[in-house]
Design a protein around this nucleic acid. Structure first.
Length: 592
RNA sequence: GGGGCUGUAGCUCAGUUUGGUUAGAGUGCCGGUCUGUCACACCGGAGGUCGCGGGUUCGAGUCCCGUCAGCCCCGCCA
């Protein structure tokens, strides 16, 4: 009998239950134990009238987290002893028999944490993960994760998709993140790579005629971590043949609809609105806009330019613009707060932030010098500024103003409570195929290099790569990229041109991606798909900010497993088998 | 690779600003009392490499340098 599901309707029945000792309350003659299993808590009562003396004595010696098997009678609690704060608080189990299946040593961290006490440090929680995972909060997260994963599987299966597994030991591809490498014992000096995603395999499955594929796929990337980034994470990976964007969006929307319905019993508003990449960057400064904030970035160049204000005119003459946001109620911000905002803008890559406050009498602040009578009336009529507003602007090239305005927009909206509750989904489409590498200026894939370009020949693509748009898309929820995908490039010549634009020679393309291009020679259907970050979605569903709370055995920021002690050093003999010799001193971790 | 925060009893924290007697609290643990508790209550007890190493000083939990670990952020993550 599950502990947490017992209610008054079970009164009078004899049952057995098993679980962990959560708390013990010993009144001397009568003792109580809260017994816990995955479903919840139930109170065990040990009393001389019902329970054999030896069982009562044994109950007096129980430790927290001992594992018990109990036989007893479910009964309504006496009047006045009902606990309304407890799901099973109307009943208790009068114990007749007890077996201690396992006893627990004193605990390094408590499972039943006193309500006023903070959680143990992250370090101890990870080191003693088994105990941490026993807490109801984490157990709930994994129930949600299970329901969400099941929801995705059921929805995709029902939509005609076939789940296929792809290799973990793969070929390294030089694009993208750093690979986790696995040395080959049989082929000294050669390495497998663990997959950053099943990208190429799923495209090959399309070529292989599996026209609707999905996988709950583990992905591994050897990059530095964050609260929302683990070295191994899970994607719902989907690919389909003979499709365009609308088909992919419909599948993804239905999958998410089903996931939310089956997991949280909630209907999400599908279909999601769409926005081009250019529109997102123009109006929100980012390719993942948080639409809970309805402030938009506006172009003030026309309104304020040519009025003798050097910063504004200088930026425009240099080919830039003056863009900014109108912050309702922002005139209340203090001078020192505005100085801090200016500093934030600088840190975000802008030269600084221009601001002016709107008062009943006009405009005040550094940027007010650009506002003559005409500009003032344009601001009021076209930009809707009202007394009490703050106009916050950045002058310069879009590449500087967009990121800074994005940061300021989100920061001020949070501070002023201008962000609505709830969820704002949006598809962002029409990404550029390439963006310039910030260091070299060379083209780098903005999505990934297997994305279909829009309306371009291989020759045109190589001649002017930065002007090419792509059929890539992201699904953004509240400013977080949740899923991303594209219609893929299935034309070998175009695919070759993309890879060459990224700096590979024809020989390198053949060596690294020959298997893909070859597969595309024998009749490949047009195809496309998406991948959805399951960990992030579940984190969002349960309302936690750290992925560690939805991954059973996560790594630390330094990519260590504190519980099992990974990574670890290995014996030289083992390394010799692999043809590997270390040239530094042996690291601290040990093999045994 | 860089920046920030944290590290004191099994756990959660105070004490560090201004160096000075024996480093405290709550909780957990151990012993005891208690027949209706529910964070049970009450009495008693044990428990400390102040992360680690070095330095300054008559004297360092406290100041300085280094280092390790955890967390947050930037770079990075197609």
């Amino acid at each position: 009998m599950p502990c947490g599901l017992i209610d008054a309707s079970w009164a009078g029945r004899s049952v057995h239950v098993a679980g962990w000792v959560h708390r013990r309350r010993d009144k001397g003659g009568v003792k109580f134990v809260l017994l816990r299993d995955r479903t919840g808590l139930v109170q065990l009562a040990f009393e001389p009238e019902r329970t054999p003396a030896d069982v009562i004595a044994a109950a007096g010696a129980l430790n927290p987290e001992d594992v018990l098997w109990i036989r007893g009678d479910i009964e309504a609690r006496p009047p006045g002893a009902v606990n309304p704060d407890m799901a099973t608080g109307e009943v208790e189990i009068r114990v007749r028999e007890m077996t201690v299946l396992a006893s627990s040593d004193p605990l390094p961290i408590l499972v039943a944490i006193p309500p006023e006490e903070d959680l143990p440090s992250e370090e101890l929680r990870l080191r003693h993960r088994v105990l941490d995972l026993r807490r109801a909060e984490l157990q709930r997260n994994f129930v949600t994760r299970h329901l969400a994963t099941n929801g995705a599987r059921a929805s995709l299966s029902q939509q005609g998709f076939l789940e296929v597994e792809t290799p973990f030991l793969t070929r390294r591809t030089p694009e993208g993140a750093r690979d986790y490498l696995v040395p080959s014992r049989i082929h000294h000096g050669e390495f497998y790579a663990l997959p950053q995603s099943p990208q190429l395999y799923k495209q090959l499955l399309m070529a292989a005629g599996f026209d609707r594929y999905f996988q709950v796929a583990r992905c591994l990337r050897d990059e530095d971590l964050r609260a929302d980034r683990q070295p191994e994470f899970t994607q719902i990976d989907v690919e389909m043949a003979f499709v365009a964007e609308d088909d992919v969006f419909a599948v993804c929307e239905r999958m998410l609809f089903d996931m939310f319905a089956s997991t949280l019993d909630r209907e999400i508003p599908v279909p999601f609105p769409r926005m081009t990449w250019a529109e997102a960057v123009e109006s929100y400064g980012t390719d993942k806009p948080d639409l809970r904030i309805d402030w938009r970035i506006r172009d003030f160049s026309q309104a304020l330019g040519g009025r003798g204000f050097g910063i504004v005119d200088g930026a425009i003459e240099a080919g830039g613009r003056v863009r900014g946001i109108v912050v309702p109620g922002g005139a209340a911000l203090s001078r020192s707060r505005l100085d801090a905002i200016n500093e934030t803008a600088r840190r975000s890559g802008a030269k600084g932030a221009l601001w002016m406050k709107v008062t009943e009498d006009g405009f005040t602040g550094p940027a007010a010098r650009a506002v003559d009578d005409e500009a003032g009336s344009i601001l009021r009529s076209d930009f809707g500024v009202e007394p009490g507003d703050l106009v916050l602007m950045i002058a310069g090239p879009d590449s500087e103003s967009s990121p800074a305005l994005d940061v300021l927009r989100r920061e001020l909206a949070t501070e002023l409570g201008a962000s609505s509750e709830g969820e704002e989904w949006v598809w962002v489409t029409d990404f550029p195929l390439f963006e310039a590498d910030p260091e070299t200026g060379e083209p780098a894939a903005s999505h990934h290099p297997f994305t279909m370009p829009v309306d371009v020949t291989p020759e045109e693509l190589l001649a002017d790569p930065f002007s090419v748009r792509s059929r890539a898309y992201d699904l953004v929820l509240n400013g977080t990229e949740l899923a991303s995908g594209s219609i893929r490039c299935h034309e070998p010549a175009l695919q070759r041109a993309i890879l060459e634009a990224l700096g590979m020679t024809a020989e390198q393309v053949d060596a690294r991606f020959g298997f893909l291009l070859e597969a595309f020679r024998y009749g490949v259907p047009p195809h496309g798909g998406f991948a959805l970050g399951l960990d992030r979605l579940v984190a969002l569903m349960v309302g936690v900010s750290s992925l560690r709370d939805v991954i059973a055995f996560p790594k630390t920021t330094a990519a260590r497993g504190l519980m099992e002690g990974a990574p670890s050093a290995v014996d030289n003999e083992l390394l010799a088998d692999l043809g590997i010799r270390l040239d530094g001193p042996r690291a601290g971790g040990t093999d045994d």
